[in-house]
């Protein structure tokens, strides 16, 4: 089933404990995440703005702002942290899966 852009809007936090060999899993902030040394996350706004968060050099979470686009099942994230493309495998309301 093709992924709708609207299904991607909002915050996604890496749920590495659920990763498969070929897949990375993200969950919504209300998911009961266990403690971790740090988690990568991103927030996709309707108007194309992006906020990326992740562990900093001393484990304090830090964030960068940028833009995002969605085209051909590929989510493109651009911020001072760099540019990357995530190939979407599936996007449910509470679970986003991308190709590792």
């Amino acid at each position: 089933m093709p992924v709708e852009r609207s299904a991607l809007i909002g915050s996604w936090i890496r749920s590495g404990e659920e990763d498969g060999p070929e897949e990375r899993v993200y969950r919504r902030p209300d998911y009961p995440f266990p403690p971790a040394r740090g988690r990568e996350s991103f927030e996709l706004a309707e108007d194309g703005r992006l906020v990326e968060r992740g562990p900093g050099p001393t484990d304090v979470p830090t964030e960068d702002s940028g833009e995002w686009e969605f085209e051909d099942d590929s989510l493109r994230l651009r911020s001072p942290a760099g540019e990357r493309a995530l190939e979407i495998v599936s996007a449910e309301s509470d679970r986003l899966v991308v190709r590792a």
Binding site: P57, V60, T62, G82
Partner: peptide
């Protein structure tokens, strides 16, 4: 991910 130093930002 590249991340800025929390303190060096501030």
């Amino acid at each position: 991910m590249i991340r800025h130093e929390y303190l060096s930002e501030t």
